[in-house]
Amino acid sequence: MSVPRFWRKIPQRYNLIGTQCTSCSRTFYPPRSFCPDCRRSGETVPYQFQGKGEVVTYTVIRSASDAFAQQTPFVLAIIRLDEGPRVTAQIVVENVNEARIGMRVRSVFRRIGAEGDSGAIYYGTKFVPDVPYIDA
């Protein structure tokens, strides 16, 4: 990742802001500026997703590229957001064997990566199991 490429989509990465087609109401995350259904007869506008969803499929990454090598093992999943679109994201769990298809998750703000010790830090959205907080 480079700084301009990261920066360009900061609102989308931090806050799950996607797009919606004003013609057919279909929502997109990751954002698309062109609705594949309505094509040029549609127009897309920003759309805020609520950050809740369900695990469609997942894996545990045990061997990663350099940028993620110090985070392994971690759970990577495809999540269907409640509004419809599916997104690829990490799921933060206590034990990587916890991940399940159908698991309800909610979004959290986490550090995604960094350019070494002195470069830019990339923040973004991960998900955690959507379990209620309990008192003790």
Binding site: I61, Q71, F74, T88, I112
Partner: peptide, 8 residues
Amino acid sequence: WEGFVGAT
């Protein structure tokens, strides 16, 4: 949207 979040 895949590689950025750690997908291999």
